[in-house]
Design a protein around this nucleic acid. Structure first.
Lengths: 193, 193
DNA sequence: CTTGACAAACTAACGGCGTTAGTTTATAAT
DNA sequence: ATTATAAACTAACGCCGTTAGTTTGTCAAG
């Protein structure tokens, strides 16, 4: 087998492709190696462990999500910005479910690099809320509430938890976003008081 | 080794114990068998597969969550009922994180038994909202919103996603619940109109 | 042009996993 | 006392991540 001179970047992007097309749960180093026409052990010339590769894919996933978010809020303010941000988040989770799962499965604890990458996700949310007159502390709380709603909705829909009732999932989603905007307006009133 | 006459129920409850104490991710049939002083292959006299055991543990987890929820809303109405329900949900996720993860990892799709068990989780939520004057359709949507907020919050906190900022997580949680109650009140107004 | 260093690839193996097939054997019912 | 049932066993298969040690292609310095 002629040597092909694979790089670390080649391996990471092959992993991303494979996860997107075949699913995170069925991903394995051996299968990845096989697709690169390599033995599994050879991967260890480029990566230290399966976890490290997983983290590397995670950085990509976070950067993609951030990109989509920043694009969504560009030139928008207040409710319009928040709705557009939510839509981008929702679409990302729906269109790239496996990559989204990678973000969720990232060990945020005890890994400074991932921890700081987490700020990339927070930043667009803070920007979208900037048009509201809120204290810095309120924004920190509200950012958590926003992420909870979005993540909770996406992952439960993906898991099939919303099939008990025949009502439209899109309608539920819009109601959830409306709830958050109500909370934003309510918080603004409190901040003024 | 004297035969101990293990039953399916023995195995399920040993699995529950093991998951609660050692964590879902480190659970394995071989380790479970070892704790029961049995070979792994012997487990197959009682269960068909690892997935089946997982599902069985899931039924237990759902019933426990439902029990906690029903207890929380007993004799309460409207905001008080919803807040108490949310607290029970939150406490369950925090105090029994591994069992909670089992619920999340249940394959809701393509398994009728689990699908119908999902109703057990919905029911207390519908009851808690019963005091509000809402249409049946509104309740179906709001139930999804409630679960999204709760699940999103619990799983992100558990994953360590809320460590970017030093503000109190409990305060964020209360703000999230307040947001949901605002949405309930707002929906009620719309229903009357 | 040769030589030497580096790193990309290899083979072989370990211990772990879920699972299957086929076998023994204790217990409970006839 | 005999027999049927099912709880347990052994042995093996094919996955998995990972490590150690080895070959070999490539590329740069002498």
């Amino acid at each position: 087998m002629a040597r092909q001179g694979l790089t670390r970047a080649d391996i990471v992007s092959a992993a991303i492709e494979m996860i997107e097309s075949e699913g995170l749960h069925s991903f394995s180093l051996r299968e990845l190696a096989s697709r690169l026409h390599i033995k599994a052990a050879s991967l260890y010339n480029h990566i230290k462990s399966s976890d490290e590769l997983h983290t590397e894919v995670g950085y990509y996933a976070i950067s993609e999500l951030k990109r989509a978010q920043l694009e969504a809020i560009a030139g928008k303010e207040r409710a319009e910005a928040v709705e557009s941000l939510a839509d981008a988040y929702y679409r990302f989770g729906k269109e790239r479910p496996e990559i989204y799962k990678v973000i969720l499965s990232l060990p945020m604890v005890k890994n400074d690099a991932i921890h700081s990458a987490g700020f990339d996700i927070v930043e667009p949310i803070m920007t979208a809320m900037a048009g509201y007159h809120l204290t810095r502390e309120q924004m920190m709380h509200l950012q958590r509430v926003f992420r909870s709603i979005m993540h909770g909705f996406i992952s439960q829909e993906e898991a099939g938890c919303f099939r008990q009732f025949p009502v439209d999932v899109g309608d539920s989603y819009r109601m959830a976003v409306r709830g958050f905007i109500l909370l934003l307006e309510n918080s603004e009133k409190e901040a003024r008081a």
